[in-house]
Design a protein around this nucleic acid. Structure first.
Length: 224
DNA sequence: GACCAGGCACATC
DNA sequence: GATGTGCATGGT
């Protein structure tokens, strides 16, 4: 089966299994951006705690967070881990937003997708996955998000080599799928939920909706 | 107590 | 250009 068709079949299997996941969890675009930075290499559970602390202190908005000293911000987001690094990264984004768009996400998202992606990548602490998460889930732009689970699942299913890089994997998805925002959002969400439930470093492939009925794939996954 | 989690920047070779 | 390392909390 060709890779494009397999990617579409994988989507169908996972969508049937999990249903509509309504991603990203977050009430506002700003909260989504903050979550995207806080969840870097971190379990979402810990990010939720940190987000709750930011909301309780009424600083889940660009201006309040920008005016808060970095050390205080770091202590508030402590439960999310890497708190000193992440406080600096949040501050770098807030500085970018303030200096270029006067703290307005609306103005920031008025920029065309390619230019905005480049600008975000130039912000210290925003790499490809974080930039694409911001574009897709906060801005509603067609940017497919590739994460560690995406690489792991595709690699175990023989669709990519284990050394495939971010741009290659992103192009593979974007060339295979209809260019529809809801599909991009749902597909990445499905991959993350699959990863969390079935495709950790020690996979639980027997129950995975992608593993069922394919002993070759299951064997390969278990061996990896 | 070891292992892992929805990355990224930086150093080193 | 590839590979290794620091960053840190909290759940399993």
């Amino acid at each position: 089966m060709n890779p494009k068709l397999r990617l579409c079949r994988i989507y169908s299997s996972l969508d049937a299994h999990f249903g509509d996941l309504h991603w990203w969890p977050g009430e506002t675009p700003f909260e989504i951006i903050v979550g995207a930075i806080l969840t870097q290499n971190t379990a979402w559970r810990n990010v939720e705690t940190a987000i709750g602390r930011l909301k309780n202190r009424r600083i889940m908005n660009p201006r309040s967070m920008r005016l808060l000293p970095e050390q205080e911000l770091a202590s508030i987001i402590r439960p999310a881990g890497f708190f000193n690094v992440k406080a600096a990264r949040l501050k770098a984004f807030l500085r970018f937003l303030h200096e270029n768009y006067g703290d307005s996400l609306e103005r920031m998202f008025a920029v065309d997708t390619a230019s905005l992606r480049s600008a975000l990548l130039a912000v210290h602490g925003i790499g490809p996955e974080t930039a694409d998460s911001i574009l897709l889930y906060a801005g509603g732009r067609p940017a497919f998000v590739v994460d560690a689970y995406t690489k792991r699942i595709l690699s175990r299913h023989g669709l990519i080599s284990s050394t495939a890089d971010y741009p290659y994997i992103q192009r593979l998805f974007m060339a295979s799928l209809p260019k529809e925002i809801p599909i991009y959002k749902q597909y990445h969400a499905l991959i993350v939920e699959t990863g969390k439930a079935f495709c950790r470093k020690t996979p639980i492939c027997s129950a995975c909706p992608l593993g069922k009925g394919d002993p070759v794939r299951v064997a390969r996954a278990l061996a990896s």
